[in-house]
């Protein structure tokens, strides 16, 4: 248990250990710890930001969805209205067309009636003439009585 040179040896060894520790052990480990702390803090901040962005996106999505729904409703309503209009239009067109066709048919019928009447008139005249010839037993001068016959035919 004597005090001797070991004392100085120990002091030197201690000094060398501390120097090594100061130079090669403490700084790299503490730097790594500091870097990790920063990384974790950054990561947490990023996660926080991500979460907030997600919430904002959700709000945006809800808004967009609502807008889309409203628009869809409008489009459907417009389409409904348009369809009703088209149907109405078609109905009125059909009515007009039908009236036109009816008029045309009526006109044709009138025309045919007129033609038939003209033909009948002519035939009635010739019948009347042949009847009168037979009654009179002679030839009636058609040209001489044309005027009178015309008047007669017009009365039919």
């Amino acid at each position: 248990m004597n005090i001797n040179l070991t004392l100085i040896g120990q002091s030197i060894a201690f000094a060398v250990f501390v120097w090594f520790c100061l130079k090669y052990i403490w700084p790299p480990i503490l730097t790594a710890l500091e870097a990790r702390r920063t990384r974790i803090a950054d990561g947490l901040a990023a996660a926080e930001r991500g979460l907030r962005a997600k919430e904002e996106a959700q709000v945006q999505i809800d808004e967009d969805l609502e807008a889309a729904k409203t628009q869809a409703r409008e489009i459907i309503a417009n389409a409904q209205r348009r369809a009703d209009e088209i149907v109405e239009e078609a109905k009125s067109d059909a009515r007009v067309e039908g009236d036109k066709l009816l008029d045309a048919a009526k006109a044709e019928i009138d025309q045919q009636i007129h033609q038939a009447r003209e033909a009948l008139r002519g035939e009635v005249v010739s019948l009347a003439l042949s009847g009168a010839e037979q009654v009179l037993m002679r030839e009636v001068d058609a040209t001489a009585h044309d005027e009178a016959l015309g008047k007669l035919a017009a009365q039919l």
Partner: peptide, 12 residues
């Protein structure tokens, strides 16, 4: 348990 060692450190 050697006072040289402990004194060596404490004197440093």
């Amino acid at each position: 348990t050697d006072p040289n060692a402990t004194f060596g450190m404490s004197l440093a």
